[in-house]
Write a protein that binds this DNA or RNA. Structure first.
Lengths: 138, 138
DNA sequence: GTTGGTGCAAAAATTTTGCAGGGTG
DNA sequence: CACCCTGCAAAATTTTTGCACCAAC
């Protein structure tokens, strides 16, 4: 795990620092989406709030994580797949939001279907969000 | 138009007030999604910022509008179709967000394709957001 | 007249920015 | 050692809450 973290950071030309390692570790462990608040809690507020903001921003720019839309418009981040390059996400799986427990789940196996757009539109990224009840809450 | 607005408000057991009429009118005219900031601008700041917040909140609860998740996690609202009842939305058309001019366009003719979910998930609403360049900006 | 909505003020929460010190490569 | 990252402080922005007044029914 530790080696994996280092590799991800180095591959993106980022210096390996404590906060980056820890936050990246959280994403690898959680296997889901994290909010800014989650990260603060899970690190035990060991890092400055500002550092968390900047680290997330950096990860976003490098394409290590992406942000995902949620039902209540809070800000959630999730790990990108390996084939995300800088500024270019191929993260077109479906996100499921449970309206009961509020959890956001990445349905990695469900790919976003292609849609035909009216002429003139130049699509760049597709996102799909399904809301409903998850396994536990139904 | 004015009669239509009154009817919508009355149908939802809301008193007909200036701000509600104006904000609802904006949604009917825009035929697309509006951000909180858009509304403040388009009303010429005639109404208190707080009133706008509360009006939007009320409309949300009544199911007159719904919020749209966007790629950059800004908060957008759009009118619900007629068959939206309270807390029950069937607004499954595609939203297009232009990354150049920032406009959000409802592609009413493009329906969201059905996707197969893994067992256990009980879907309620499908939303799809496409980002890219619109006709004017490409 | 009663109920509910609005505006104002203030507080709370979230996010951004500047700068000096410290860790990384 | 040069550079980038972090923490602290402060500012800017966004959202929420309380209360008195006014408008809608």
């Amino acid at each position: 795990m530790d080696a994996q973290i280092d590799e991800i950071l180095r591959k993106n030309q980022l210096s390996v620092t404590g906060s980056r390692k820890r936050i990246l570790e959280l994403f690898l462990m959680s296997n889901g989406a994290l909010a800014h608040g989650d990260i603060e809690k899970k690190t035990g507020e060991k890092f400055d709030r500002v550092t968390v903001y900047r680290t997330l921003q950096t990860f976003l720019e490098k394409g290590i994580i992406h942000n995902i839309p949620t039902a209540d418009n809070s800000v959630l981040y999730a790990l990108c797949k390996d084939d995300c390059s800088e500024g270019h996400h191929h993260d077109n799986h479906v996100h499921f939001i449970c309206s009961e427990c509020g959890k956001t789940i990445c349905l990695a196996d469900v790919t976003v279907p292609e849609v035909k757009l009216p002429g003139g539109f130049l699509p760049h990224e597709y996102q799909m969000v399904v809301t409903g009840l998850c396994k536990e809450c139904r």
